[in-house]
Write a protein that binds this DNA or RNA. Structure first.
Lengths: 376, 376
DNA sequence: TTCTGCGGTGAATCTTTGT
DNA sequence: AACAAAGATTCACCGCAGA
């Protein structure tokens, strides 16, 4: 298992990677989610009905018919009915979420504002709104508006005070030219081979999301072994990507045909090798090392001096793990702050010891200890 | 002239172009907008307080202080108080709008969902949500979220049944390489010379919007001679752009200092010659491509290996877009540097994938994506 | 004159752990 | 629950000083 000690101890145990399970529950998502154990879910992804309220038919300039979303499940009598529906499923999802869990909801301008406001009213704490920019959106045939070239996802924690949610910052950054990931993502629509088609050759579901989108969602905010749920399973894109990425999955679906198609789809997915999924060992999750351990291990002797990078300042190492700068005594951090005249300082990356080869950062000594811990 | 024919014939005569006027009304925007003649306004642009609710300080990694929005006008006691405020100014604006007028409201995830839901509840008919993608957003300093790299604008008509609103479709398309204008706009922040500074050299207003953003708004949804109003005038960006583009303007502002600065700014603006109000062109830059996009598009599968030119080294591709060389994990660039023992490396021109025809540089795969993007 | 390096900064709901 | 301490963390662009 590739778990950081800190990460592993700070959270409830995960589902074992090898035993990851994937299932679809047929039925109403509110009723069925309420049967889950409260506080058992790591991540929720939801693609609820958009309440498009389309009137009449839409035709292309060449008079061909546009196959729009026109299903019963997308019809609501009023904003109020849609709001009630939204509150109900959000509450059921929230109950199932661990305190450290997060939730993603995707929508368009037809529904996302209502969803977002209700999420705030229910106490969810918004972390980001993410824009899915489509490389190949459907054009605006009438020429009366801007091409609707994006959808919006809301990423939120369960509560304002929620701590310890998963955000794989370093991995995202490494995958993005070493700059941090932004809130706008450019991803193509789900087309071609990936698009599920029925025996009649027609698309199974009108709003199937691209796996690339779900992959980025799961890779950014969940870890292998996590339990991911989707209240609106549809064709099971979330489940397929979850399985591929070593996450467990429960999808909820009212429509038997969708559920059947999704089950077959997910069953055919081959999980990626575990070592291609292992989380980074990040600085944030690396085990803590006390400065006194360097002394206990004999890497630094009491009475030696620590220097800043320019060797203008020298601080005396005390046997108890504090250091003395002039007549002041304190931690490596506090004394680093004093030395710089700043409010805070990471002493590990400020102080050096003198070696035959010149100054050596004490953070390198810490790294040696950590390497030894990993090898144990 | 850049006018759609359709737009020109469909409505009442406009204010004469030469007599365009520009003024700022000091006072509460709800009270003052209520004094306008009902149904007299062609376009509303509103940049209301975002209700950021910032708590403590934020410092950059270098310990410098982030100068955040901390003004009284952005403070509300609760969501409910903010909603009441929002309803009040939206209703006052709506009363002043012509039946064919449209309204733009800009916000961030802190407030835009509430604003959008209230607009729907009040009967506005949403036409688009537009994403302002910032080329140079402030980074996320703590690494706990995605960089908040965009803001959202809602563009709406007064009613569902409203006909004949202005949308300069042909001009926008001509200005955009002859393809329809999309709902995502890439525009830099307001910085440098354009940013209004006081005698102390500090920014006059914490949230001054770039003129490029307002120019695109006005060029897309108004015509020369139109009356444009802004309930939250601030430093008068809307007014300055309106004057330059031959539109009339009324701005409402509570703060006398903002009002004064805006008046001077607008007075200094020289309107463009009437016949030069041409559509504007945006240069397309070579888009940045993330390595993870190759995975998302299925061009490289997680678990496959990347090789150097001599095929002496192999690195494993991880699902998250990082690669693993030996026991080290990092970006294609970092691992290229490690492989070469150098400080830096362009991973795109270092790593290869194996194909039936031999090794293929991953930079070629990137070129394929860029070619597709250019063809959009 | 042109180039380079450094400092400043932008609507930000920006940590985690132990006492 | 409040507090203190440890310690992790930034991208694009602009202006200016100095070479």
């Amino acid at each position: 298992m590739v778990e950081s000690r800190r990460g592993a101890s700070a959270r409830a145990p995960r589902t074992n990677f090898e035993s990851a399970s994937h299932r679809i529950v047929l039925g109403d998502c509110v009723a069925e989610m309420s049967k889950l154990q409260a506080g058992s879910v790591d991540l929720v992804f939801a693609d609820p009905p958009y309440n498009l309220q389309l009137k009449g038919d839409l035709k292309r300039p060449d008079e061909s018919h546009v196959d729009a979303v026109n299903d019963d499940w997308d019809k609501f009598d009023s904003f109020s009915a849609y709001d009630d529906f939204t509150r109900a499923w959000l509450l059921a999802a929230r109950r199932a979420m661990k305190p450290s869990a997060t939730i993603w909801v995707i929508g368009s301008y037809h529904n996302i504002f209502r969803v977002g406001a209700i999420m705030q009213d229910l106490g969810f704490w918004l972390l980001n709104d993410i824009v899915w920019r489509k490389t190949n959106p459907m054009p605006n045939f009438r020429g009366r508006r801007f091409t609707n070239a994006h959808e919006t996802m809301i990423w939120a924690a369960r509560d304002e005070k929620a701590k310890g949610y998963t955000f794989n910052y370093e991995a995202l950054k490494a995958a993005n030219e070493d700059v941090q990931a932004r809130s706008d993502w450019l991803i193509p629509l789900c087309t071609g081979e990936e698009r599920l088609k029925g025996a009649d050759g027609k698309k199974v579901h009108p709003t199937q999301k691209p796996e690339g989108l779900l992959a980025r969602v799961l890779l950014s905010s969940s870890r292998p072994g996590d339990l991911v749920i989707d209240p609106f399973n549809g064709t099971g894109t979330t489940g397929a990507v979850a399985k591929r990425l070593g996450r467990s999955y429960i999808g909820f679906e009212r429509d038997k045909a969708y559920g059947k198609a999704a089950e077959m789809r997910i069953a055919a997915v081959e999980p990626l090798p575990e070592d291609s999924l292992a989380p980074f060992m990040t600085a944030r999750e690396a085990p803590r090392v006390a400065f006194s351990e360097l002394i206990e291990r004999g890497m630094i002797m009491p009475g030696t001096k620590l220097f800043d990078a320019k060797k203008k300042l020298g601080a005396l190492v005390r046997a108890d793990g504090a250091i003395m700068l002039g007549d002041k005594v304190g931690s490596i951090h506090r004394m680093g702050a004093v030395a710089q005249g700043s409010a805070a300082c990471n002493g590990w990356t400020f102080w050096h010891v003198e070696t035959k080869k010149g100054l050596k950062l004490i953070d390198e000594l810490r790294a040696e200890i950590r390497a030894g811990m990993a090898a144990e």
